[in-house]
Simulated assay, not measured.
Amino acid sequence: MNLIVDFGNTSIKAAIFDGKNLVRTYSDISPQNLKMLNDENNLEHVIVSSVTKSEQEIKEVLERDLIYLSSSLPLPFQINYKTPQTLGLDRIAGVAGVQELFPNENALVIDMGTCITYDFIDANSVYHGGGISPGMKMRFKALHNFTAKLPLIEPEEDVELTGQSTKESILSGIIYGISAEIDGIIRMYSDKCAHLRIIICGGDAKFFENKLKAGIFAAPELVLMGLNRILLYNA
């Protein structure tokens, strides 16, 4: 059994894998819960991806050796990126997850979390980079924080294209704006690359997966699957 841990910007996610098989996932857990998972399961290996905790801090919590994800760790794909040391760990893990699901295919990973990230890997397992733009909640907060009168509102499912109030206009601008952005970027990558697989993941993926035009494969556990693939590659 292997423990997979993702310390994100706002929460901790974890999973237990038996080889390549996902056994169980855990969301919004605490460091103390992680220690319990480690103590209560017969774990062979642990891998951690963290943007908030250092390797030493996590080792002190779990009281064991572990694999700590970084761009310098051996990876199952080649990185063709000018500054690999600045590459987000969630982006690395997402690309590895796509390799697990769709090996030897051209793929675009769209991760809809705090930010929306786009990551392209080709059929020869070469990662080329992608793009970063503000996520949905960040856009709502930006309109409120950087203007004098626009309110902070929450996203809603049924939104009219033509807003007839300030609230409706904000909802339309952000939700249809994100949808148009994603559809447009998918179209541009598809024009450059035939037989492109599109994968969407992240906290806001479920909100948007039915609002997008292109055929998309939803993989909510993509990052955890990718971390497990990297663990198995290094174990």
Rank of each mutant, 00 (worst) to 15 (best):
F146H: 06
L75P: 01
E209T: 08
A148I: 10
F146N: 07
G202F: 03
K211V: 06
S70A: 03
K141E: 01
G97A: 09
L222N: 11
P74T: 05
A218G: 07
L196F: 12
A214K: 04
G130K: 03
T10Q: 11
F208Q: 03
N228C: 08
K213C: 04
D204N: 07
K206D: 09
Q85I: 02
A219M: 00
M112S: 00
G177N: 00
G8S: 04
F7I: 11
I153N: 03
F208C: 05
Q78S: 09
S11L: 12
A15K: 05
E55T: 10
I216E: 04
D18C: 11
R197I: 13
Y127L: 08
L101E: 14
K59Q: 13
K137D: 06
K20E: 15
A107G: 11
P134S: 08
L101M: 10
P155F: 02
P74L: 00
A205T: 14
G94R: 10
L87V: 01
S54E: 11
I121V: 13
A235R: 13
Y127P: 08
L101S: 08
Y127N: 08
E100P: 06
G131I: 14
I174W: 00
A93I: 08
D183K: 00
L22G: 06
N2D: 15
E154Q: 12
N42T: 15
Y233I: 05
L108R: 08
S72A: 07
A96V: 14
A96N: 10
E156Y: 00
A148M: 10
A14G: 11
S27G: 02
I92M: 05
G130Q: 10
S72C: 03
I199A: 00
Q56F: 10
V23C: 09
G94T: 10
I185F: 05
I12N: 04
Q85C: 03
K13N: 07
I16R: 12
V109H: 01
I58E: 06
S54C: 09
Q99D: 12
H128D: 08
N2G: 07
K213E: 12
S54T: 15
